[in-house]
């Protein structure tokens, strides 16, 4: 009897109205990549800690990812430093996304906090963290987002803060809703918050996204699944933390960010201006 795993996948026609491929076609592609990765992992033990640059199920990456191997260099000069951000750059109120537009935004108020640390667990101190996100209905304040969900006059969805001496950042915001996009037919991004973080060096510069625990859409999402290693993917998911949750005010989530790849010794004295 034929092994069902080896039978060819039947072709999946595009959606008659949108002309886009069905989720099932994407699921099959993503499952094949996962199986191939699992087999390689079994054979070699070499896990992938990061995101793939080339991940065909994310259709808009097709012409935008490098196809040549990156060139490894030892960082030098400016690459061993990060910009200095200070009180003149960031107003503490910018960390509260619920007070920016003169009224209370709709949705589940939440606190998201965590630490930015290096590969040895040392805090990244007084560095810039920027976030942006959709509103509770999954709509972005952006002219390119025209899907029929309401804008919230009281919510912009961007915030900034500096980490403290312990590397901790903290935002008050609204839980973002899932967002539909046209990677394929009936494609929905899981609720997510975009994060832009700086380490102590250029080499650590990172833009990423935070997801929520238990979201059924992460398994269907080609951006999240472009992190093919399940343990690495789990590092993009925040944890619900009842100690962060505030009585009659906000739910709480905790998400730590680890930036490896520092080279300059952190024992050098800080030279903040």
């Amino acid at each position: 009897m034929a092994d069902p795993m080896t039978q060819p996948t039947p072709p999946t026609p595009p959606h008659p109205t949108t002309g886009l491929e069905p989720q099932a076609a994407l699921d099959a592609e993503m499952a094949a990549i996962s199986s191939s990765y699992a087999a390689t992992l079994d054979a070699t033990g070499a896990s992938e800690a990061g995101v793939r640059r080339d991940y065909p199920p994310y259709r808009s990456s097709r012409l935008r990812h490098p196809t040549k191997d990156p060139h490894q260099v030892d960082p030098e000069g400016i690459e061993l430093w990060s910009p200095v951000f200070g009180a003149r750059d960031v107003d503490p109120l910018e960390a509260d996304l619920t007070i920016q537009r003169g009224g209370e935004p709709q949705g589940e108020r939440m606190v998201v906090t965590g630490r930015v640390v290096d590969g040895d667990g040392r805090p990244v101190r007084r560095q810039l963290v920027e976030i942006w996100q959709a509103n509770a209905g999954g709509r972005y304040v952006h002219q390119r987002d025209q899907h029929p969900a309401p804008l919230d006059p009281h919510f912009t969805g961007m915030g900034r803060c500096l980490t403290d001496d312990d590397g901790t950042y903290r935002f008050t915001t609204i839980r973002p809703g899932p967002y539909p996009w046209r990677n394929h037919h009936n494609a929905w991004r899981p609720g997510h918050i975009h994060f832009s973080v700086f380490g102590t060096q250029f080499t650590q510069r990172l833009v990423t996204q935070m997801y929520f625990p238990g979201d059924p859409l992460t398994a269907l999402d080609p951006i999240c699944q472009a992190v093919v290693d399940p343990a690495a993917r789990a590092r993009l998911v925040a944890a619900y933390d009842h100690d962060v949750t505030q009585h009659e005010w906000a739910t709480g989530y905790r998400w730590d960010i680890v930036l490896t790849g520092a080279h300059r010794t952190p024992l050098e004295p800080e030279e903040d201006a």
Binding site: A49, G50, S61, G121, H142, H194, V207
Partner: peptide, 26 residues
């Protein structure tokens, strides 16, 4: 110098900036 960590944290993967960063990063 520092306490010995019980486990080595591993790096947070990157994700695309997506199409909607214009009202946040610039």
């Amino acid at each position: 110098m520092t306490s010995t960590p019980t486990s080595t944290p591993t790096s947070t993967p990157g994700q695309t900036a997506g199409p909607f960063f214009h009202y946040a990063l610039p």
